[in-house]
Amino acid sequence: MIEVRNLTKTYRVPLKAPGFVGSVRSLFSRAYKDVEAVKDLSFTIQQGERVGFLGPNGAGKTTTLKMLAGLLHPTSGAVTVLGARPQDRDSAFLRQITLVMGQKQQLLWDLPPRETFELNRAMYGIPRAEFTNTLDELISLLRIEPLLDKPVRNLSLGERMKCELAAALLHRPRVLFLDEPTIGLDVEMQVQVRQFIAGINQRFGATVLLTSHYMQDIAALTPRLLVIDEGRLRYDGALTELAREMAPERRVVVRSVEPALVPLGFVEDGGKMIASVAPEAVNAILARALAAVPLAELGVEETPLEEVMGRYFRKEAAAPPPEGAA
């Protein structure tokens, strides 16, 4: 129900010549440069999926999301969301989607969140009974009862984010676009937000599209991953597949500094001892480590996601894929 074919977005940026003479010259003529923010993106997302967009800063993730929501118009290519062209901004279309941007807020600043909720109710034309039900559900899921009557400017960033999420979901949209939803939040709040989004996916059956810098968002929420780099789609598939391909090894971690482990292949790293081994070799090295240091605290971890992605991008940099995506 989200179909994207050869989606491209190109900006024309005016060039500024340096120096005073350049500024005077620019009074008379202007040079432009074409910047390709998104190039030839193609993918399909089904109803109810949870998909993550991952990529470096400026890769085109937010641009893509905005095109899906209808805020930006594609330069070329086709986008269909729920059977509609987002850029037409049909009323019916807008009622079924929502976009939450971490940096831009819709809550009225000087009034309590409740007032913004009422405003949205009026703007979306939500019948009173339905509105009350949805609101109550959102309040209990987000645990924002005590915040509802405080002016928004008195809320902390995390509290504001939760209220923003509530405001964005009052009309029970079928598609939920989230742009960096956990940015700037403390760890506990990030966990709460992730749980909430997963909950919405289950209870409302809403499709979730999420962009994020935080690997934990992707790992916790979105089994399917779209990697976007320099405007192109580099990978489209399950996160676990990518991890297995890029970083098949396991890390055996001992949470104390034990010199005895060094000959076994452990390296000290910030108060811990770490050894990277192939999955088949984990048991063997565990046995040997325990034999060497019986009372040590041992753990087995997968390679951190940052590492996985780091390797992926380094590989991409070394041998870019052919035109047209994964």
């Binding site: 500024k16 005073f20 620019s26």
Partner: peptide
């Protein structure tokens, strides 16, 4: 003044 003028010139319609 020079910096301010340059900034102003950059926006030629503004000028």
């Amino acid at each position: 003044v020079r910096v301010a003028l340059m900034t102003a010139l950059q926006y030629r319609a503004s000028f």
